[in-house]
Simulated scan of single mutants.
Amino acid sequence: MALVRWEPFRELDNLQKEMNRLFDSFSPERYGRLTDGVFAPAAEINETDDAVDLKLELPGMKPEDVDVQVAADAVVISGERKSESRTDEDGYVRSEFHYGKFQRTIPLPTRVQNADASAEYKDGILTLHLPKAEEERNKVVKVQLNPASS
């Protein structure tokens, strides 16, 4: 019988890999984005030379159930997706929809003019257009080039 050296750190490393694999199986694409057990809408952000455009998925929500607050460096979206009360003839209903209150804070890649922000809500997609702050738009940095030393 051969002696095998016990290496506890290798076992901990294997345990960590197994736990990571387990948590990776609960991907947001499969189960929806969850934050602290509460649904949070998926977001998409796009930065252009003049503005930051932000889109959020809010299917089935009414505009009056959503609150949008824009600061110079972040956007806070909160709201509530209200459940519909219904009963089935069999006495039970299965639902995979997420209901309840949510709040999501999205940091912006640059400062914006929050007073000039505009929003559009169509087909369950909230689109925010956030013009960049004037000092960010005109920000040009001159870089000094030093000759490479041989």
Rank of each mutant, 00 (worst) to 15 (best):
E47H: 12
P107W: 04
D50F: 13
R86Y: 13
E57T: 11
L126G: 08
P107H: 13
L130F: 09
S118Q: 15
V68F: 01
E80H: 04
S95M: 02
A117K: 13
D116P: 08
I45G: 02
V68M: 07
E47W: 10
S118C: 10
P107F: 03
A42I: 14
G100P: 04
D65S: 12
D73K: 11
R81M: 02
Y92I: 07
L56Q: 05
I106F: 07
E120M: 07
D88Q: 07
L58N: 00
G124C: 08
K132F: 01
G100I: 04
V140W: 08
L108C: 08
Y99T: 06
P41F: 00
E64P: 01
D50M: 03
L54K: 04
V75M: 05
P59W: 01
G60P: 01
R137C: 05
E80P: 01
V141M: 10
H129F: 06
E134R: 12
L126Q: 05
A42L: 07
V141H: 10
P59K: 09
E80S: 09
A43C: 03
V66D: 10
H98E: 11
V141P: 04
L126F: 03
A40P: 03
N138V: 02
L126R: 06
A119E: 15
K132L: 09
G124L: 06
P131N: 11
T127G: 07
K142V: 14
V68A: 03
E96F: 15
D65F: 00
E134A: 09
Q103K: 14
E135N: 14
G91D: 12
G100Y: 03
V68Y: 03
D50E: 14
R86G: 08
N138Q: 14
V143I: 13
D88L: 01
P131K: 08
T105R: 11
D90E: 14
K82I: 10
M61A: 10
V66H: 03
A133L: 12
F39A: 04
T87A: 07
L54Q: 03
P131E: 00
L130T: 08
A51L: 07
R111G: 00
N114H: 15
V76L: 14
D49H: 09
P131F: 03
L130N: 06
M61F: 03
R137S: 07
T48E: 06
E134K: 13
H98L: 12
G91W: 07
Q103N: 10
V70W: 00
V112L: 02
T105V: 11
K132N: 10
V38Q: 11
T105I: 13
I77N: 05
K132A: 01
E44L: 12
F102P: 00
V66P: 01
N114V: 00
D65G: 06
V68N: 00
K82T: 11
A72G: 04
K122T: 10
K132Q: 11
V76K: 11
N138L: 11
A115D: 15
V52M: 02
V70F: 02
K142E: 15
K139V: 04
K101W: 01
T105Q: 13
K101Y: 03
K122S: 14
K122N: 09
D90S: 12
E136C: 07
E136M: 05
I125E: 10
I125T: 14
M61I: 03
